[in-house]
């Protein structure tokens, strides 16, 4: 028991080691990302404000992530609902295909999409990134929404119909409010994944880099690294905030439907 606890704590240190380094170098007054540290500065953060290419890439990423989140959540609602509520032929195969991107190496997804877009003569750009991101985010949305839809007692919807509601009315008044927390966390998670996704964006971005693609280009220039660290710090803080929000929504949803908490995402 004690041995396990110590191991768990060491493991947490292992998990958090890179993230803890991030702010250290972001505030370090030295151009080299190495020890020893040189003193405290915030100049890397203020430098962030002046880089136009960075701002453009952030805008691109936000655009891609917002649209991705909406579409993958919509597709996720369809799939999760169908999976939880209905029996239909080839269910396992269909669901398997939709969930496949979860385990497929991303590079395969990226090159296969690239080949299709190039062969069809599409101009690759933000829209092609969105198409790829929706593909890989939908399984995550489904995984999150599945638990929301499965927690829904089917007789609750039947009760609403029994009391005079139409199918559509039941969906609006009963189903939707009860799965809303799941929808919100699906939106947040898909948004976060899309914001952070690199490989697909790298292959499909054309002339409009997303934030990770821009970051990648900066990693080659040692003098840009402290700024990257500052940017990374901000990103980490933001994604932790989004995650806490998503988790809070999930728990709120559980509480509201009177369910027991059985653990985190996935």
């Amino acid at each position: 028991m004690n041995g396990l606890r110590i191991y768990a704590l060491i493991y947490l240190v292992f998990l958090y080691a890179p993230i803890i380094l991030l702010p250290i170098f972001a505030f370090n007054d030295g151009t080299v990302i190495a020890f020893p540290l040189q003193g405290v500065t915030t100049k890397w953060f203020s430098e962030l404000m002046t880089v136009n290419a960075l701002h453009d890439s952030v805008k691109n990423s936000l655009y891609v992530a917002v649209i991705t989140a909406i579409f993958s959540t919509l597709l996720g609602i369809c799939a999760a609902r169908a999976q939880a509520r209905y029996r239909f032929p080839a269910k396992k195969g269909i669901v398997g295909l939709i969930m496949l991107p979860l385990v497929l190496p991303e590079i395969i997804v990226a090159v296969s999409l690239l080949i299709v877009f190039l062969s069809l003569g599409f101009n690759i750009g933000l829209w092609t990134i969105i198409l790829g991101h929706v593909l890989i985010c939908t399984p995550f949305s489904i995984a999150i929404l599945n638990s929301s839809f499965q927690n829904l007692d089917p007789s609750i919807e039947e009760a609403a119909q029994d009391l005079g509601e139409t199918r559509f009315g039941t969906f609006l008044k009963i189903t939707l409010p009860l799965v809303m927390p799941g929808i919100v966390s699906s939106l947040l998670i898909a948004f976060t994944i899309s914001m952070d996704e690199f490989i697909i964006a790298f292959f499909l971005s054309g002339t409009e880099p997303t934030l990770p693609v821009y970051l990648w280009s900066q990693l080659r220039f040692p003098q840009r690294l402290p700024v990257v660290m500052a940017l990374g710090t901000i990103l980490v803080v933001l994604s932790i905030l989004i995650l806490i929000l998503a988790e809070a929504m999930r728990r709120y949803g559980l509480r509201r439907s009177g369910m027991q908490d059985k653990g985190g995402f996935l």
Binding site: D153, S155, I156, E158, A159, A160, D162, L163, I174, P177, L178, R256, S257, G258
Partner: peptide
């Protein structure tokens, strides 16, 4: 013109 009391009662939790 029927109404039902469900086995799980199906009380709307929200």
């Amino acid at each position: 013109p029927t109404n039902m009391v469900f086995q799980s009662y199906a009380i709307f939790p929200h």
